[in-house]
Design a protein around this nucleic acid. Structure first.
Length: 417
RNA sequence: GUGCCUGUAGCUCAAUGGCAGAGCGCUUCACUGUGGCUGAAGAUGUUGUGGGUUCGAGCCCCAUCAGGCACCCCA
């Protein structure tokens, strides 16, 4: 055999079983999205690099995007995220769209990073946003969508939690302990990195950022205060709305949630597996403006993104992924022998016309045919041999129970239904 | 982009520098109108790739590729 060319680093093959799981996931997030009236959309996977130059953190494009020249020599980027694309789509149709927009999307993205567990170079992402609304209800709604999704896939509040915070609250609280506006970005960044650094190293970095010992102590009190949210009218409302929506079990307050991206201005949130085994499942928040940088009128909103990699690892951990790679309702039609073939093909056509999914066997020993049927995962096998043809019968065997019955051919469709 | 760990049959893993193995899976048969279960027999392979050291390398050294872990960043 000649050498098999390796797949591109950080990409994954989706064999039928993995593909079935991806389709299952898409179906679940579609249900969650559409339950709240969100509409599906998508943009191109290729974008001009200029689209990312303005916004969205220079590092993402400079160091993490796949960029190449097209044949005309123009730099093209494989989209590393969807936000700039949405911004453009909204800005260029702003006068014709009805706000607030409720949009969701699922598609591939690329980032040139070192692959590791939960992180690949090619991944899929669920993006969902409510654009053009500044209300707290919108913040609560997006959190409710996420909660609905978790329930839809079978993850309970014991498995996953949505950790919520308010950036404005943190700003205010930092001012209260005397952190200057100039110091805030660095301090917020350090809060974000809290559990990644050893305690003494973290303390030193805070002091290096210009805070004194008292402020360091105040800061620690701050992010250990699980009741801090009561100081934010917005969070009080969000939690009340989520309570009214019946989703509060999935929600918890966490003063350490900051989010790296600069454009978040209000409520921010991340979903984590409760045992802390994986990186964030999804992340998002409220932004003051999505489109100004691409030349539109200001459009505030709230949204989140969920990559496929981490959520699949979490679902696998809890045994919630489907394992069938073929629809188990699919039927299997054996072929008894050459002489029975015409009658078998006629029956196949009839069943498919009636809406059944039916796999046709190969002419072989019946035992082999059953074995194949069992291995591809179908649950019911039909046999049409000489004696059945003579008597107008079809044998239906249930592979799970081993039960087998002879059915009048005219009754077959109703028996199978 | 930085540091570290790993790479042997389809899968999970063994093998003091001295004939490359086990379990599971796979193929065939027992079983010419029936899968799973059982029994018997059989095939697993350029030890990721390319160099080097050595009488001799899966094992030691170098490079490279891939995966994993910690950074960085984030989904």
């Amino acid at each position: 055999m000649s050498k098999i060319i390796q797949k591109v680093k950080g990409t994954r093959d989706f064999y039928p079983q993995e593909m079935a799981q991806r389709q299952w996931l898409i179906e679940k997030l579609r249900v969650a999205s559409e339950a709240f009236g969100y509409q599906q959309y998508d943009g191109p996977c290729l974008e001009q690099i200029d689209l990312y130059a303005a916004k969205s953190g220079e590092e993402l494009v400079k160091e993490q995007a796949f960029v190449f020249e097209d044949r005309g020599g123009d730099p093209i980027t494989l989209r590393p995220e969807l936000t700039p694309t949405v911004s453009r789509m909204v800005a260029s149709m702003q006068n014709q769209l009805t706000f607030p927009l409720r949009w969701w999307s699922f598609g591939p993205f690329w980032r040139y990073e070192r692959p590791q567990k939960g992180r690949t170079r090619e991944f899929f992402q669920w993006n969902i946003d409510q654009i053009g609304s500044d209300s707290v209800l919108a913040d609560a709604e997006l959190l409710a969508v996420a909660a609905r999704f978790f329930r839809e896939v079978g993850l309970t509040p014991e498995h996953v939690q949505l950790h919520v915070n308010d950036r404005e609250l943190m700003n205010t609280e930092l001012s209260k302990i005397g952190v200057t506006d100039a110091q805030k970005p660095e301090v917020l960044r350090l809060i974000d990195r809290l559990d990644k650094l050893p305690a003494d190293v973290w303390d030193k970095l805070v002091l290096d950022a210009g805070l004194n010992e008292t402020q360091l102590a105040d800061l620690k009190t701050l992010f250990e205060n699980k009741e801090l949210w009561r100081n934010s009218e917005r969070l009080v409302q969000v939690f009340q709305y989520l309570d009214d929506l019946g989703e509060s079990a999935y929600i918890s307050y966490d003063p350490r949630i900051i989010r790296g991206l600069d454009y978040y201005t209000g409520v921010v949130f991340e979903a984590h597996e409760t045992e802390g085994e994986f990186r964030a499942i999804l992340g998002g928040g409220h932004y003051a403006d999505l489109v100004a940088d691409v030349g539109g009128k200001p459009a505030p909103g709230v949204g989140f993104a969920m990559g496929d990699v981490v959520i699949m690892l979490v679902l696998e951990k809890y045994g919630l992924l489907p394992t069938d790679s073929i629809d188990p309702k699919t039927l299997f039609m054996t072929i008894f022998d050459e002489d029975c073939l015409p009658a078998t093909l006629a029956l196949l056509a009839e069943l498919r016309q009636a809406g059944f999914k039916v796999v046709m066997s190969e002419i072989d020993r019946l035992g082999k045919q059953f074995r194949y049927a069992d291995r591809i995962g179908v649950k019911r096998v039909l046999v049409l041999g000489p004696s059945e043809i003579e008597k107008g019968l079809v044998v239906v065997k249930d592979l799970a129970t081993g039960d087998q019955q002879k059915v009048q051919r005219k009754d077959l469709i109703s028996v199978l239904s």
